[in-house]
Simulated assay, not measured.
Amino acid sequence: MSSRAERNRLVEANLPLVGYLAADTHARATHIPREELAAVGALALVTAADAYDPALGVPFGAYARRRILGAFADEMRSMDWASRGIRKRIKETVAVRDTLTAALGRTATVSEVATAMGSPREAVSEALADAARTVSTIDDPAARDLVADVRLPEESALVGERREVLEHAIAALPERMRRIVLAVYIEERPVKEIAEELGVTHSAVSQQRSEAVRLLRDALDRYFAEGTVEPVASTRISPAARDAYFGRIAEAAGARIGEVFRTAAPA
């Protein structure tokens, strides 16, 4: 971007896009917390503004949308609850149900599907329940026409302060997590390529990226917590490691931000 002010303007103007896409994706992927999607999307929006080149002739809203949805897709892949075997069972069960439904002229019952498949009723019922929560594609054409210049007050409030906290939180991540976050969200590199460079598995990179996002979310939750109630941690690292992370943010940030995180740092 030509200036930090212009980058900030783009982030502020398109913040409602994050809220919309997070809500829309969560409606079809209810197993992923909306707050986690929002945190992933906010990070993708900031990094999109940093990397955006107006000379490409692509509107920033469209460019940011692609980056945000890509970040959501990575998050869903890293949290995928269904193995290949489960997905195969879901596909077969739904196919039998749909075939019976077409033949009978009404929705087939669980017992009828179970009989046709020669499977226990409980297994069929579980497969159909899993099918109901299977994630559909997030690249929904309906979202392409979203107008991102409608400001939602509850989403745009304190955006500058959130961005400042987020920048310090990213800088304070453990080295490998920070490298992965920058590679995924800034450089847009494939996870496979990052894994090969680091000498780890694809799964390990995805896990580290997800843990980094949880740490960033914890940092934002810590800073914007209301009252004296300690926010519930979403990260899976030990409390001591989490406090050390907060301590690094406190050391690097100014007095206003640092004071909040010093109260969480080890005595």
Rank of each mutant, 00 (worst) to 15 (best):
R179M: 04
R176F: 00
R189Q: 14
M177N: 15
M177Q: 11
L152R: 08
A142T: 10
R162T: 03
L182M: 09
R162L: 01
G160I: 01
L173Q: 04
R189A: 14
E154D: 10
E164R: 15
V184M: 04
P190G: 12
E188S: 15
D145L: 10
E193L: 12
A169L: 11
L173W: 05
A195T: 07
E164M: 09
P153L: 05
E161A: 00
R178S: 05
M177W: 15
A143I: 14
P190S: 08
A171V: 08
A169R: 13
R162H: 05
E175W: 12
A183V: 01
E161H: 01
Y185L: 08
I180L: 05
S156H: 02
L173A: 06
V159A: 09
L182H: 14
A183K: 04
R179V: 10
P174R: 11
A183T: 03
L173C: 07
L182N: 07
A142M: 06
I186S: 15
R162Y: 00
A171Q: 10
L166P: 08
V191E: 03
V191I: 15
R178Q: 04
E154N: 14
P174I: 05
L173S: 08
E187W: 14
V181Q: 01
E193C: 04
I170T: 05
E187F: 14
E187H: 15
A171K: 14
R178L: 02
A157H: 09
P174L: 06
A195I: 07
I194N: 07
D149M: 00
A157Q: 08
E175A: 15
R162M: 03
R151H: 12
D149Y: 12
R162A: 08
V181N: 00
A169V: 07
I186C: 15
P174D: 13
M177Y: 12
